[in-house]
Design a protein around this nucleic acid. Structure first.
Lengths: 192, 192
DNA sequence: CGGTATCGATACCTTTGGTAGCGAAACTGG
DNA sequence: CCAGTTTCGCTACCAAAGGTATCGATACCG
């Protein structure tokens, strides 16, 4: 877990491999208590780790959540026989991810905090939004502002519904979202 | 300002008419410092009012913000020669409101807090979302779930962009949003 | 004038994100 | 085996912020 590839190990006691344990504890705590009540103390207790250990590895609660989400989402699956099929699968993919226990609440929560926290906004953009935006641009050959617009539409709609109901969007509304977006991605073959 | 229509005035000292002053102080403070840094203490100081006075009138910061937004938005203008024209003007209307100083930040901030606060979510739904949803349903004759879906799309997109950039959506993207929604509202005349 | 409810002011409580300091443990190189 | 370095858990602590309690003063009604 801790640097196994290049460069000799630095001096001192190596970090214990508890990142995965902390991520799991984070999602389960958020799933159980909601984002605001999932305090760093509780997450540390659930992971069987001292709070200071968490702050030694992540500079803030927001950064921890972002890394946790990065671990939970993984890479965007680049599949689809056509541009429309690709966008459809991508929308269903993120909707399914958001529906996983704890993921949706953590996702919505970190976006919430970012509204009033420019530093967190920067972390969120750089580590989460930018990679997926670039992957979409490469796969579809779309200009940046157009990709950003459709990310706003898809993610904004999913998050707003979750923010208002506390539950992820139902399949029928995800399908409606797909139907709304698809006409804008009809030309040319998909990235597969 | 304080009950001028029916029923005899209740006993005791009447409330001073500072609601409007508090609303103005709230928006200007949010505009100046952002939602999270616009603490109740600061808002009270900006309004020239004691913090206890604010908590005597609104049970929480969230409820204050919701009332402030209600005051800032006013009723949805029910104008449009066709359903498409009505939806277009409604989308531009809310985009313009969100662009007003402080309004957008307060709007995004209260939605943010609501994600982890079911009580605030209830206030937000009952006092802000429901009235506009009902107005849309009456004006367009649309079923509730369809109206809720398009509210999610429009408001979610606007708020997500603001949450990621700190600034309201530019006109070009608002126009793109309109273009995306309009095909779903083509039949029949408008509510005017 | 008596009853009632609001006013500003102050002090206070609680939660929570985040930090500092400490001794113990784990690892490396000599 | 030992010195050096870094992480570990633990405890104590700080500051910010939402929210509450109390109190004397004030405004209004009958």
């Amino acid at each position: 877990m801790t640097r196994s590839t290049t460069s000799a190990r630095p001096p001192g006691r190596p970090r214990s491999g508890v990142n995965a344990v902390v991520f799991a504890a984070t999602l389960s705590t958020v799933n159980e208590l909601g984002y605001a009540h999932a305090t760093v103390d509780r997450i540390a207790a659930a992971a069987g780790v001292a709070k200071t250990t968490i702050y030694r590895r992540w500079p803030s609660k927001g950064a921890l959540i972002v890394d946790c989400l990065l671990d939970a989402f993984g890479p965007l699956p680049l599949e689809g026989a056509s541009r429309a099929a690709f966008m459809s699968s991508a929308i269903h993919w993120i909707a399914a991810k958001i529906s996983e226990p704890g993921v949706g609440d953590a996702f919505a929560g970190v976006f919430s905090d970012a509204v009033s926290d420019p530093a967190l906004r920067e972390v969120l953009s750089t580590r989460l939004q930018d990679p997926y935006r670039l992957a979409l641009q490469d796969a579809l050959g779309e200009p940046e502002n157009r990709v950003l617009f459709f990310i706003d539409v898809v993610v904004g709609t999913l998050l707003h519904r979750m923010g208002m109901t506390g539950e992820p969007m139902v399949d029928a509304d995800v399908a409606a979202l797909v139907e709304m977006v698809l006409p804008h991605f009809t030309d040319g073959p998909g990235p597969t």
